[in-house]
């Protein structure tokens, strides 16, 4: 699948943003006054930046408001609705922390739950697609949720939670790659089942349906990133999971927060790039390409 930069930015930044907002909502990072303002502001900025980035790849961004309407059937719509709902529900908690209004923590806990629902909805946009076997697995939402939790724990320097989550994320990433590498074959679709010609014999491409490119080839059959899969996986693991642990252990809190988060984000971008670039759509079978 084509790894659109806007979608990578959206899923990574809003994932980190909602993870951090959930952490603040739960009161896991005790903040008050202008410290609270900065932290909550950062969480909101990340979440909103991600959501805005997601509109960049739309053919008609001015109609994006319509995407709030189909929450009964569409995970993409649910993602939009839950994101906005989360930001609204958490607003009083943020004000309370900033201005010391003393509102009940239950608001933050509710908001944290909605953060999880939002990240889950983002992941389900991809998980639901039977046409992309690599994504069509429960490890996809687990990976997205792990990234949100780990990023938040690193940003807030919650030790030893950050160490543990980095380890869990590493294991989830490794499991996802291992399971994902065999997903297309396990889904069992071949050029024979795609065309139904397996009832006659072994089907192969004779000549392409068109000599020039088209939307399908550009969007679904993206092979550039796959050449460097092994290197990118190492980069993702080292930057998202291993380097943050070392930085958090070695550096003073504020410096550790900035540098470990930067490293983690770099790793997250690499992992998310791979998430798209490695995913193969069954439509490629019609073209004899994956």
């Amino acid at each position: 699948m084509h790894p659109a930069p806007s979608v990578i930015l959206f899923t990574v930044l809003s994932g980190l943003g909602f993870g951090f907002l959930a952490l603040l909502g739960l009161g896991a990072l005790p903040v008050s006054g202008w410290g609270a303002f900065t932290c909550w502001g950062l969480g909101y900025a990340l979440a909103v930046a991600g959501l805005l980035a997601s509109t960049f790849h739309l053919g008609h961004p001015e109609r994006a408001w319509r995407a709030f309407s189909q929450w009964r059937s569409s995970w993409l719509s649910r993602e939009g609705v839950s994101a906005v709902l989360t930001l609204l529900v958490l607003a009083p908690m943020a004000l309370s922390d900033w201005l010391d209004l003393g509102f009940g923590r239950w608001i933050g806990v509710l908001g944290a739950g909605l953060c999880a629902v939002t990240v889950l909805s983002t992941a389900m946009i991809y998980t639901q697609l039977r046409s992309v076997p690599r994504w069509n697995h429960w490890l996809t939402p687990v990976t997205f949720l792990c990234f949100a939790a780990t990023g938040a724990a690193i940003l807030a320097v919650r030790l030893p939670w950050a160490y543990g989550l980095c380890a869990v994320l590493a294991l989830v990433l490794l499991a996802g790659w291992r399971v994902g590498d065999g997903a297309f074959a396990r889904a069992g679709q071949t050029i024979g089942s795609a065309t139904g010609l397996d009832r006659l014999g072994r089907a192969e491409i004779f000549e392409p349906a068109h000599t020039a490119g088209n939307y399908l080839l550009r969007e679904m059959i993206y092979v550039v990133g796959r050449r460097h899969v092994a290197k990118l996986r190492v980069i993702a693991l080292v930057f998202a999971c291993i380097l943050p642990v070392a930085l958090l252990a070695a550096l003073p809190v504020h410096l550790a927060s900035v540098l470990a988060t930067a490293a983690h984000l770099l790793g997250a971008f690499a992992a998310r790039w791979l998430f798209f670039a490695e995913a193969e759509h069954v439509v490629g079978l019609y073209y004899g390409k994956r």
Binding site: M1, H57, L58, G59, H60, P61, R63, A64, R66, A67, L76, I125, Q128, L129, R130, S131, V132, Q189, A194, N214, Y215, L216, E219, M220, H281, V282, V283, Y286
Partner: peptide, 20 residues
């Protein structure tokens, strides 16, 4: 008139029936 051009429907179609 209501399509935002997000492309998700084309991703969901196994048959490549939709083109943006």
């Amino acid at each position: 008139d209501a399509c935002i051009g997000c492309g998700l429907c084309a991703w969901a179609c196994p048959y490549g029936a939709r083109e943006m």
